[in-house]
Simulated assay, not measured.
Amino acid sequence: MDALIVRERRDLSDGREVKGAAMRARLRTATEELIAEVGVAATSAAAIAQRCGVSRGAMLHHYPTRDELIIDTAAHFWQRQRETVAALAEDLSAGRTNVGTFVGRLYDEVFRANALVTMLDLMVSGRIDTRVGEAVNRILADLFHSYGDLGERAFAAEDLAPERIRTLVTLIVSTLRGLRIQDNIDRDETRVRAVLAMLGEAVEALLERDRRTPDVRRVRPARARSGVRT
């Protein structure tokens, strides 16, 4: 999946396939929208082509099968998510934002994306469609692993042990994912903001406690002694 993205960016950079890249982007957008609206099973190649306003033949020229289009859509979703989280992590690490703002922006810019509903549906459908399911599971595994890496960057200033940071990131991500599912079923913006504020306060409290707890600090090798022994 990463190879497709790298190739597409290379094609854009040297001026080749600009129109083709634009068409593939349109097809991926149509695929995301349809899966979010009607589910994977009802998202046929014909429906995607119709939503995109192109012939089915034109679509198949870029993606020979529906599965390839769905898998590439998931791969690009992963890449967008990672880039967004990386920017948020950099802001927190550099002190340009605080934990509460970081949590709120993470929810609004990542977890509230319609594509997240698409990915959740793809996860469920993967139990039936082995090829799509296996590909999506690999993409999600990479995504969740990157969350841990980006979390270490975001909270680097706290000087906590990597495993402690990854646990903290899991708490944040799991809560936001659950909140997104809940809000998709029963929308309540006041409740969403209250939960985000509470999560931010909880994370701040955990960090404050960890600052006073040697057991969760990063273990650093002892410095070599200098001087002449007598």
Rank of each mutant, 00 (worst) to 15 (best):
A41G: 07
A42Y: 06
T43H: 00
T43K: 07
T43V: 06
S44A: 10
S44G: 05
S44P: 06
A45N: 07
A45I: 12
A45E: 03
A46I: 06
A46R: 13
A46S: 14
A46M: 10
A47K: 10
A47V: 01
I48L: 01
I48Y: 00
I48S: 00
A49Y: 01
A49R: 03
A49H: 04
Q50D: 11
Q50E: 14
R51Q: 08
R51Y: 00
R51A: 05
R51H: 00
C52K: 02
G53Y: 02
V54M: 12
S55K: 01
S55E: 02
S55C: 04
R56C: 05
R56A: 10
R56T: 10
G57F: 01
A58V: 03
A58F: 01
A58H: 11
A58K: 08
M59P: 05
M59F: 04
L60C: 08
L60Y: 15
L60F: 14
H61W: 06
H61L: 12
H61E: 12
H61Q: 13
H61P: 04
Y63H: 09
Y63K: 05
Y63I: 07
P64T: 06
T65A: 01
R66G: 06
R66N: 08
R66F: 06
D67N: 15
E68P: 05
E68R: 13
E68Q: 14
L69E: 00
L69N: 00
I70G: 00
I70C: 07
I70N: 00
I70R: 01
I71M: 11
I71F: 02
I71S: 06
D72F: 07
D72A: 13
D72M: 07
T73D: 02
T73P: 08
T73A: 13
T73C: 09
A74V: 09
A75S: 11
A75Y: 04
A75K: 02
A75W: 02
A75R: 03
A75F: 03
H76G: 10
H76R: 15
H76D: 07
H76W: 13
W78R: 15
Q79Y: 14
Q79T: 11
Q79N: 15
R80H: 13
R80I: 04
R80M: 10
Q81Y: 14
Q81M: 13
Q81C: 14
R82Y: 06
R82V: 15
E83I: 11
T84S: 11
T84Y: 03
V85A: 14
A86Q: 12
A87S: 15
L88A: 09
A89S: 12
A89M: 04
A89C: 07
A89E: 05
E90S: 15
E90L: 15
E90F: 13
D91L: 15
D91G: 10
D91P: 10
D91K: 15
D91Y: 08
D91I: 11
L92A: 06
A94M: 08
A94Q: 13
A94H: 08
G95L: 07
R96D: 12
R96M: 13
T97R: 01
N98Y: 11
V99M: 09
G100S: 11
G100M: 02
T101H: 12
